[in-house]
Amino acid sequence: MKFKWALLSLVFTISTVLIGCEPVLVLDPKGPQAETTANVIWLSIATMAVIVIVVFTLLVIILFKYRASKQSEDYEPPHIEGNHIVEGIIVGIPVLIIIFLSVVSVKSTYEVESVPKGYEDQEPLVIYASSSNWKWHFSYPEEDIETVNYVFIPTDRPVEFKLYSFGPITSFWVPQLAGQKYAMADMVTTLHLAAEVPGEYMGRNANFSGEGFAENIFNVTAMSQEEFDTWIDEIHATAEPLTEDEFDRLLEPGHLGQMTFTGTHLDFLPPPEGEHGGHNHGPSESESPSHMEHEYSDHEDHEHHDHGEHDNHDSHE
């Protein structure tokens, strides 16, 4: 079967070309959580490659050996019902592989769902990351500042992102630091990560959330704790406070650049956790979704308007 070979070589070319390029984001981790997932991925690729190779080899051999053109006219294939030993093998080996991968999966899942290994005794930096159409708001309750569409984190310190949404379900994702987690309107989810290498990382909403989804991205910058502290002080010195009116405007659908404020919206619009959780949402809390009611035609106006403000507040670009 030369076609099979054509197919195989195609797969190989593609994979070599790709491995030749610079590593893809997910396999180029910069923190312990992403490293765990990258290791799991490599391990699973290796295990799965064995299976693929076995199946491909068997298939190629069988197709070569038993094609009709290679056999005599009067060859009559035998009637074979099945064989317990063969069936034992084709059940047994996959079961062993699955058990092995299950152990890996469970262990690594517990790992990425908790504080990064080696960081357990450090006090984590808590950041509330909430999404609205189509922005990310980052509130630092301890430091009492809030940013839009970018987030600074210190390296070598555990960071706890508390995620929720002012609209559709979104998925918080910084491929080089950790896997995704959903942000939803009626509960707060927690994502643990840590960055070990200073630098700028791409972050985005990975879950489809409507018209502005493609540009629903943010920047993560990891820096040393000292630099991070300086940055906080700088903001307290230069940025304007975040008012309720201002935040209402921020929630309107559209895209904004990067913005910075002192104070957080958590004070006047508490996140949906504890007593504010989804279970007992009364009409008093029903305000937030009303922010999202909109006419699509308004977008551009808002964008212009917001860009004006963006210049005032933004201290980093």
């Binding site: 992403a34 799965m48 999966s105 690594s108 998925s171 990975a206």
Partner: peptide, 16 residues
């Protein structure tokens, strides 16, 4: 690749 996706921790990176 389905088995790979089934590994929850790795799926955090494949999802969506």
């Amino acid at each position: 690749t389905g088995v790979m996706l089934a590994m929850a921790s790795a799926d955090y990176q494949y999802h969506n």
